[in-house]
Amino acid sequence: RLTVMSLQESGLKVNQPASFAIRLNGAKGKIDAKVHSPSGAVEECHVSELEPDKYAVRFIPHENGVHTIDVKFNGSHVVGSPFKVRVGEP
């Protein structure tokens, strides 16, 4: 089962990169992540390998409000996905 680490749920800033990590815990497959902005825009997140069992997911929010992040592994949502994060002040 995958572990999502260091996902900041609030206090993110517009046009500043945000990232979190995913540990695969021995699982093999493909991570896919997309961020949905409050206006409905959908953007791919950048996924990069940090070490053999750990990946970083990076995105840049372009507007204030609550964004939804879909994180999928081999086509299925990971536990807790979709995640909600707040950009800007509430």
Rank of each mutant, 00 (worst) to 15 (best):
V35G: 07
N74V: 07
K28I: 12
F59E: 00
R23E: 09
N25H: 15
A41P: 12
S48Y: 11
S39Y: 07
K84Y: 08
K54I: 06
L2S: 07
E89N: 13
V14P: 08
A33F: 12
E43F: 15
V79G: 11
S6Y: 15
G88Q: 05
S48D: 09
V78A: 12
E44M: 02
E43Y: 05
Q16F: 04
K34L: 08
S10E: 07
E51F: 07
K54Q: 08
G75S: 12
C45P: 07
E9G: 06
E63K: 10
S10I: 04
K34I: 12
L24F: 07
F73P: 01
V47F: 01
V79N: 13
P17N: 12
R23H: 02
G40P: 02
K34T: 06
E51R: 06
A41H: 14
S48M: 10
V87T: 15
R1Y: 15
G40F: 03
I31E: 00
E63D: 13
E89H: 04
K28L: 09
D70Q: 08
V79T: 13
V78G: 08
G75P: 00
S39L: 09
V4M: 06
H77N: 09
F83K: 07
V14S: 12
S6F: 14
V87R: 00
R1I: 15
P52R: 13
V66L: 10
P17H: 06
I60Y: 05
R23S: 10
M5H: 05
F59P: 00
I31N: 00
G29N: 01
V71R: 00
P38F: 01
R1W: 13
E63P: 00
P61H: 00
V85F: 03
V71S: 01
V14L: 12
V4Q: 14
S10Y: 03
A18F: 03
E49H: 14
V85M: 12
S39A: 05
K84E: 14
L7G: 04
D32F: 01
L7F: 08
S76H: 10
L50Q: 15
C45M: 08
H77E: 13
G40Q: 04
S48N: 13
I31W: 03
E44H: 04
V79A: 07
K13Q: 13
R23C: 13
H62I: 10
E89M: 11
V14A: 04
K30E: 14
H67M: 08
E43R: 07
S39M: 14
D32K: 05
G11H: 03
I31V: 08
V66G: 12
L24Y: 01
R23P: 01
K30R: 12
A41W: 03
R86H: 03
P52L: 12
L24H: 01
I60E: 08
S6V: 07
S10W: 01
V85Q: 14
F83V: 07
K30W: 07
I22N: 00
H67R: 00
Y55L: 10
R86P: 06
A21P: 03
S6C: 14
K28E: 05
Q16H: 11
A21W: 09
S37M: 08
E9T: 15
V4H: 07
H46F: 13
S81D: 03
V4Y: 09
K84M: 04
R58W: 02
D70W: 08
R58L: 03
P52F: 09
S76L: 08
G29E: 05
G40C: 14
K54R: 05
P61R: 00
R1T: 14
S39C: 03
H77I: 06
G80W: 03
R86C: 07
D70S: 10
I22E: 00
E9N: 10
F20D: 00
H67G: 02
L12N: 06
V4K: 08
N25Q: 04
G65F: 02
K28W: 07
V57C: 15
V35M: 11
H77S: 10
V71N: 00
